[in-house]
């Protein structure tokens, strides 16, 4: 058996990076910010590699929509072991549905068993691109998957749900979005990083990315108000309890 996967990945600011809003108020300042492969997408790349290895054959193509700098993000996935990469170049940032349309347009002409995504991108937290692409392509989808198996033309996926897990079966080809679970991302080996340079990375313009949604404004979360000292030692306990009960309402 062989498993062919397409993994959609996104370039996002590093989780440790301090992000500032740009002068236009609608985007973030990119200068001096380190960008990484979206951590949830790493689970998806790892899942694709694991299933290819388990099947003994197949291939893993990584795909991204973005500017030229997203090539670096794709090479990170190639260094982990993906076989080929496609960069669909967009002139500026695209909103979720537009990204989904671009991906669907590209993927519909390709042969694949699994179309994998991270459950969400850590920058905009949309969680919708995966299911939207599945809808546009008319294929089944499962979201927030921690682990899945592939056998006999179908995938069996374990989803993380409130208070437990749910097992679903999907006919191939299908779309799956991954969350933290069985697929701990591997390190790109140093040889893998060198080999990534020689792997195919196709660049073409993003096609069909229209959307009715536009970002109006970005703002920072409200600043937290300063703490209050209610007293010292055991004497302060009754007052602290009263405040926790009546003001903070946490008890």
């Amino acid at each position: 058996m062989r498993v062919k996967s397409i993994v959609c990945v996104k370039r996002v600011p590093d989780t440790e990076a301090r992000v500032r809003i740009a002068a236009d108020g609608q985007s973030i300042e990119t200068a001096g910010v380190k960008f990484v492969l979206n951590p949830y997408d790493e689970f998806a790349v790892e899942a694709a590699l694991k299933h290819k290895e388990a099947a003994g054959a197949g291939d893993v193509t990584v795909l991204s929509v973005g500017g030229g700098e997203s090539a670096e993000t794709l090479r990170t996935a190639l260094a982990m072991g993906a076989d080929a990469a496609v960069l669909l170049k967009s002139a500026g940032p695209l909103e979720g549905l537009a990204v989904a349309r671009v991906i669907a347009e590209e993927v519909k002409g390709r042969e694949y068993d699994l179309l994998l995504f991270g459950m969400k991108a850590i920058d905009d937290d949309l969680q919708a691109v995966g299911p939207m692409v599945a809808e546009l392509l008319g294929i089944p989808a499962a979201t927030a998957v921690t682990e899945f198996s592939v056998e006999g033309g179908k995938a069996t996926a374990t989803r993380e749900i409130e208070g437990g897990s749910e097992v679903v079966e999907l006919k191939l080809p299908c779309a799956i979005t991954l969350t933290k679970g069985a697929y701990e991302p591997r390190y790109a080996s140093l040889k893998g990083i060198m080999a990534a340079k020689k792997k195919p990375l196709e660049e073409k313009p993003a096609a069909g990315g229209e959307s009715g949604v536009k970002v109006e404004k970005l703002s920072y979360p409200a600043e937290r108000s300063a703490g209050r000292i209610v007293g010292e030692g055991p004497d302060a306990v009754p007052e602290l309890l009263r405040l926790l009960r009546n003001e903070a309402k946490v008890l």
């Binding site: 390190y187 790109a188 990083i193 060198m194 340079k197």
Partner: peptide, 14 residues
């Protein structure tokens, strides 16, 4: 270079 940074970052993370 991009490879040099990627190698550095990989070992750094490890």
């Amino acid at each position: 270079s991009e490879e040099e940074r990627m190698i550095r970052d990989t070992v750094r993370q490890w």
